[in-house]
Amino acid sequence: MVVVSYENIINMENKLLSAEMKMADLINSYPRLLRLIPRFGMKLGFGEERVKDVCLKADVSPTLFLLICNISAFNNSLPKKSEIKQLNISQLINYLKASHSEYIIKYIPELEKSIVSVAGDVNCNSRSANVISHFFDEYKEELLSHLSYEENIVFPYIANILHKKITIGYSIEKFEENHSNIDIKLSDFKNILLKYLPADCTSQSRYDALENLFILEKEVEIHSLIENKILVPHVSFLENLQSK
């Protein structure tokens, strides 16, 4: 477990990624960052442009972009307090919203397709098929309701704060309580598919579903990290400013 005394050393890693790098080099070195490009509204075909040029074109703060890159590439590299204060919060929220719609449009339907196909496989007995479909439906519902909670409650709340309006009876502290269930179920689902669905229910779709879950798990992990370690601290900082 890495704790506070290590913070400085972890931050050294920030220096690996710089706004002066070529964007193409950045993606080549950390392919996981490819997914960030569309979420920030950037387009491929960078040529030799530097990270900061691409950011400027897309009207994205290079600091925010690098911050998200750092967290996504090296889970542990969390920003310093001073960086959190200066954050461009509306751009961050745009990024989070774009990730949400990617989950809704891409990951969840792909996963659903594989699960439907696993359950529909003739070799899979009907009890196992029912159990797995039911678990997926429940998970999907929970994930979607979590996303819509963020879209409909959390983000508007933050927008209100930015416009110096006060929302009664809500504070960002309540947000974190809501998160962990999604991660736990995802991991359970992965283990059920990997370990406990009977061997007869094995088709290509089961592998597809697992691969999809591994990607989604990583995605959700980083997404939660961004929300818990950047979004929430920034908003509590704003809340404090407001209450003064």
Binding site: R127, S128, V131, I132, F135, E138, N181, I184, K185, S187, D188, F189, N191, I192, K195, Y196, L197, P198
Partner: peptide
């Protein structure tokens, strides 16, 4: 078994 949630545990119990 690597499963934490009650609904995950239920799935485990059903499948087994």
């Amino acid at each position: 078994i690597g499963i934490k949630s009650v609904s995950g545990l239920t799935v485990y119990a059903l499948l087994n």
